[in-house]
Amino acid sequence: MTTDAERILPGTRVPLGELPKISLHDHLDGGLRAQTIIDLAPAAGVELPADTADALASWFVESCSSGELVDYLKTFDITIAVMQTAENLTRIAQEFVEDLAKDGVIYGELRWAPEQHQRQGLTLDQAVEAVQAGIDEAVEAIEADGGWIRAGQLISAMRQNDRGMEIAQLALRHRDAGAHGFDIAGPEKGFPPSRFADAFDLLARECFPVTVHAGEADGLESIRSALVDGHALRIGHGVCIADDIELEEGDDDASYVTLGRLAQWIKDRGIPLETSPSSNLQTAAFTAWGPGMTGHPFDVLYQLGFRVTVNTDNRLMSGTSLTREVALLVDAFGYDADDVEQFMVNAAEAAFLPLEDREELIERIIAGFGRA
């Protein structure tokens, strides 16, 4: 049987797994190898629910499929517990980038919250430096082996805590040493971006890019706050923007679309949406458009001209890869190579990189999709 990685999409001769990809929404603490958790758990004093890599990986997927974001987030108690030393952070970051490269990713942003990794005495700066060491080691090894990848950190603040300004300042300290952007993560409902308005204002004044988790577990006001209070250049997930889109069947069998003001604003300004299909399905981030992947608003958004991107969110918790996420969308909506190439170009254009670097990514995508 042909695997997702081996599939050949209409319009290209290159296997899906080898096509160049961009990963914008990928959590470091959600992308550990199951075997690595098993290796690190004893020294960290962590009791695991399974003792083999396959069984542990299955446990994560099953535990994250309740349809509730809060339950989904509880599984991170295990991964974060083994990420409390510089050595462990460096190993995990290195493996993370290696796994991206094996998946055909040529640029990845690793988002994580340093404030969750201080239980054994690491300072915030030491934690960031440890992760960057792992990223650098992986990139160097991949290039030495003839590959090519670029990666950086997105420094996240936990929205239920009160350390927004502190973490924003941390990100700024490391902006020339691997920090590509800022994010807020954690429980969305009840913790709007407006709580960190002062931090977002600082980042805007310093011209430092921001993405905000919004429109995943909360509605349109969360997205609006991300744009207004957070000065967000991208929206993490953002699938609830579909609630601001009305589809009607006319008497002539044609469909008519009406966009609300917020949806129209996001579309007209090309604000990227970091959709994560499997994760969105697990947390029931969308329900009104039908069951399963075919009910995901991704295709409606794409057909209407929104700047959609494809992401994994948490590869361990969803048992997925970027190749698999693309394959799921291909199966659900019949996309070909031209469509997938557009998704990757959308992501490259949205990357938190200088213009010249983004243009290089786009050139690599076009070349990768076009080579015979």
Rank of each mutant, 00 (worst) to 15 (best):
M293R: 05
I223E: 08
R261P: 05
D229F: 00
T258W: 02
S255W: 14
A284K: 13
A197G: 01
E216P: 11
V239Y: 07
I235T: 05
G250E: 14
D299T: 06
V308A: 12
L281D: 04
N280G: 08
K267E: 06
D183A: 07
G178K: 09
F286C: 08
G260Y: 12
P291I: 13
D201T: 11
E188I: 04
D253M: 12
R307N: 13
R261D: 15
A185P: 10
L227V: 04
T275A: 08
L233T: 10
G270L: 10
G181I: 11
L247A: 13
H174E: 07
A217R: 00
Y256L: 08
L227C: 08
C240Q: 15
V239C: 14
D251L: 13
N314D: 15
G190E: 08
V308T: 15
G260M: 13
P277T: 11
I235D: 04
L281A: 14
A214V: 06
H174Y: 11
H180N: 12
K267D: 04
T287M: 10
R173Q: 11
F208E: 08
L281H: 05
A285Y: 04
D218M: 02
A214W: 05
T287Q: 14
G186L: 12
D252Q: 09
F208C: 08
Q303I: 05
A232Y: 06
F182Y: 15
Y256G: 02
E216W: 09
N311T: 10
A204I: 02
A185G: 11
T275C: 09
D176V: 01
D244F: 10
G292L: 12
L301Y: 05
R269V: 02
G230Y: 01
V257G: 01
G230V: 05
A232M: 12
V310E: 06
P297G: 12
L281F: 12
L304E: 14
V308P: 01
D198E: 15
F298M: 03
G238C: 09
A284F: 09
A179H: 03
T312R: 02
S194V: 01
P193E: 02
E206T: 05
Y302D: 14
R175S: 09
R173K: 14
A217E: 13
D243P: 03
P209C: 07
N280W: 03
I184V: 15
Q282C: 10
L233P: 00
A199S: 14
G236R: 04
W265L: 15
